[in-house]
Simulated assay, not measured.
Amino acid sequence: MQGNRVITIGREFGSSGREIGEKLAETLGINFYDKELIALASKESGLCPEVFEKQDEKPVNSFFYSLVMDTHGMGQPISGYMDVPLNQKVFLAQFDTIQKLAKKESCVIVGRCADYALASFPNVTSVFICGNMEDKVNRVAETFHMAKDKAMDLIAKTDKKRANYYNYYSNKKWGSAGSYDLCLNSTLTGVDGAVHIILEFLKAKDKENSAK
């Protein structure tokens, strides 16, 4: 196995993606990062956590993004972008934080185009968690104490935001099987079943790689 092991998890809202990621990390004995990335990126970039909360997983203007990424590719630090819009700074700060984490340790990272940020890293496995709508609506309604029609609306809006963000930054399609190493329906597997399947997938991947 080359480098630290990192599992990235994309997820539909209400599909238990976060819970699956947490249990997977616990089983593997590695750290789990979701909202935790906000605190780390805030500390390293000097931007306050509230800024990350507000701008988290939101797409940006394409012209400024191209300009910033061209500069960033040459090693320009985040703090040097004095004229860059705030949401670009947030994305780049999280991008840097994700890469630093992967260099430092094995971990599970949820959302935020982590699979794209780590595309050049040798030991990354990308997973997408989906679920049947009825199951997701029931879970969201119960979790947030809201009516089912409100839960369905929240799911649609949240997934649209996540898809726009992912599609914009990664040049891949959010939720499409071709964008990930493994896609799972948590309605069919349950949380524990999903964790088990991911673990077996990692074993099979390791075996295949060692045979090459």
Rank of each mutant, 00 (worst) to 15 (best):
Y81C: 14
V137K: 02
L67I: 05
E44C: 14
K150C: 01
K150A: 04
V51T: 05
G21I: 00
E134D: 10
L92V: 06
C107I: 04
I98M: 11
A147E: 15
N209P: 01
Q88D: 15
K173T: 09
A119M: 15
F144P: 00
E134A: 07
N61L: 14
C113W: 01
A211C: 09
H72T: 04
I7F: 01
L67T: 05
D115Y: 08
A102R: 02
E26I: 12
E134P: 07
G17F: 04
L101K: 05
Y180I: 10
S62N: 13
G111R: 05
A114E: 14
L86N: 12
M1S: 15
T27Q: 12
D115C: 07
K89N: 15
T187K: 00
D149Y: 08
P85N: 08
V84W: 09
R11C: 08
V137R: 10
L37D: 11
G75E: 07
D56A: 06
F64E: 15
V195G: 02
R11S: 07
F52E: 03
T189C: 06
G111P: 07
F144C: 05
G190T: 13
D159N: 09
Y169S: 10
V90H: 03
I9S: 10
K136L: 05
G190N: 01
E36F: 03
L86I: 02
G10M: 02
L92M: 13
F64N: 15
L188W: 01
G29N: 06
V51Q: 12
I197V: 12
R139A: 08
D181Y: 09
K207Y: 02
D192Y: 03
D34L: 04
D96E: 15
K203P: 02
V60R: 10
I155C: 06
A147M: 14
R139G: 13
M1I: 05
T189M: 07
V140N: 07
V90E: 07
K205P: 04
N171P: 05
D206T: 07
A25W: 06
M74N: 15
E26A: 11
G46W: 13
V108Y: 04
C183G: 03
S15N: 05
K173Q: 12
H72F: 15
D135R: 04
I38F: 00
I129R: 01
M74P: 12
I7T: 10
F144T: 09
K35S: 05
A117P: 11
L40C: 06
K212N: 14
K160E: 15
A39W: 13
K205D: 01
F32E: 08
N87L: 06
D181H: 12
M133D: 10
Q76R: 11
N209A: 02
Q76F: 12
K203V: 11
N167D: 08
G14A: 03
R11G: 00
V195F: 00
V108G: 04
L86H: 06
N61I: 14
